[in-house]
């Protein structure tokens, strides 16, 4: 068996399933936001912030944020193992992606929960 310590779940099946599940979450969230924007034509700041005041919207947003993180990690990891042949360079690329993803997730949590 080929080992891959930097992959998301270290099992191909796990990564593959994660990629599918997170894709569904992302699609559902996109539908929600687009649907909300369509059904609320004259959107005001108060409405928008009220919408994100609902706990379920916040939870869903957080789930989506985590899904983006996992989805892009798996995707970029695959791209890097396809195209970057030099180990050092690949590691740097993966480290940069990982750090960025972490920063975005933490920052996103701060935004959503208004901490």
């Amino acid at each position: 068996m080929v080992t891959a310590v930097t992959s998301f779940g270290r099992s191909g099946l796990y990564d593959w399933m994660m990629q599918r599940i997170t894709a569904v979450v992302l699609a559902a969230y996109t539908l929600l936001i687009v649907g909300y924007l369509i059904t609320t034509p004259d959107l005001t700041y108060a409405q928008w912030s009220g919408f994100f005041g609902h706990t379920w919207v916040r939870v869903f947003s957080l789930l989506t944020l985590l899904s983006i993180g996992a989805h892009s990690w798996i995707g970029l990891w695959q791209v890097s193992t396809d195209y970057i042949k030099q180990t050092g360079l690949r590691f740097v690329f993966q480290a940069v992606c990982g750090t960025l993803m972490f920063v975005y997730v933490v920052w996103g949590i701060q935004v959503i929960w208004g901490l």
Partner: peptide, 12 residues
């Protein structure tokens, strides 16, 4: 199956 369950063998 166990030998195929890594991120490369099948899932590439």
């Amino acid at each position: 199956l166990a030998e195929l369950d890594d991120p490369f063998s099948v899932f590439r």
